[in-house]
Design a protein around this nucleic acid. Structure first.
Length: 229
DNA sequence: GCGACAG
DNA sequence: ATCTTGTCGC
């Protein structure tokens, strides 16, 4: 069932991962707009649907500059390690509705912290042509390597290193909350990705407001879609 | 058959 | 991701 997709998916990821560049291609001081991207799903009449929300936030004022939603049928199944193939088509259609042009995109999921260094944040960067960051709420275990729990202090973090390769970072964004997993998407370094993530942490969530607001927006969007039918 | 498994 | 309310604790 899922197997029919996997060979082509791996080939595509292997092709793209050669182009990943884990250095900043921008100056942090020049960042103005940061986008959070997320999806929500539902099933209706045996068909699966998804709605994507993108929330664009001003880096300095932290106010929402723009928000767009787009929903459609989802045809690709969820397969761990291949999230981009399922979600990216909808994401790209949603991006087309944006009037502003975000400088950076933050995703719900991993980037370089991935079996082949090609999590959704990294994969998406090649279609957005913008730096990206992956923010995952749970740990994707690779080569049986566990993460090291950081201290219970805001900003505490431990790196996830496998075979001398830094895949990503386990980051405690606030005290007394479960840590999140930050990884480079593309065209950014891990320290900067961590810095931006912490910049958008506020009192109401362990997630940066970019992805947090996008998450809330998908739930609202789904409610509207189902309510209008 | 059993456990793993980003969202 | 989704199915789902109140409740314990900082």
């Amino acid at each position: 069932m899922k197997e029919k997709y996997i060979k082509k998916f791996v080939e595509k990821q292997d092709e793209l991962k050669k182009l990943v560049y884990l250095q900043n291609t921008f100056l942090v001081e020049e960042i103005k707009l940061v986008a959070g991207v997320d999806l929500a799903y539902w099933v209706k009449d045996k068909k699966e649907y998804g709605t994507c929300s993108i929330v664009v936030i001003d880096y300095n004022t932290k106010e929402i500059v723009e928000q767009v939603d787009y929903f459609d049928e989802i045809t690709v199944p969820y397969i761990s390690g291949f999230l981009a193939f399922r979600e990216l088509p909808l994401i790209l259609k949603t991006v087309k509705k944006l009037k502003t042009k975000p400088d950076i995109y933050m995703f719900d999921g991993n980037g370089y912290l991935h079996y082949r260094h090609m999590g959704i944040a990294t994969h998406a960067s090649f279609y957005l042509n913008k730096p990206t960051i992956g923010i995952a709420k749970s740990y994707l275990k690779i080569e049986n390597v566990d993460f090291i729990m950081p201290e219970n202090l805001k900003g505490a973090h431990t790196d996830i290193v496998i075979n001398n390769d830094v895949y990503g970072r386990c980051l405690r964004t606030r005290e007394n909350v479960k840590p999140i997993f930050v990884s480079c998407g593309n065209w950014i370094d891990l320290d900067t990705a961590t810095e931006l993530t912490l910049h958008f942490i506020e009192k109401d969530s362990r997630l940066p407001i970019t992805t947090r607001y996008a998450d809330l927006a998908t739930h609202q969007s789904r409610k509207r879609v189902l309510g209008d039918k």
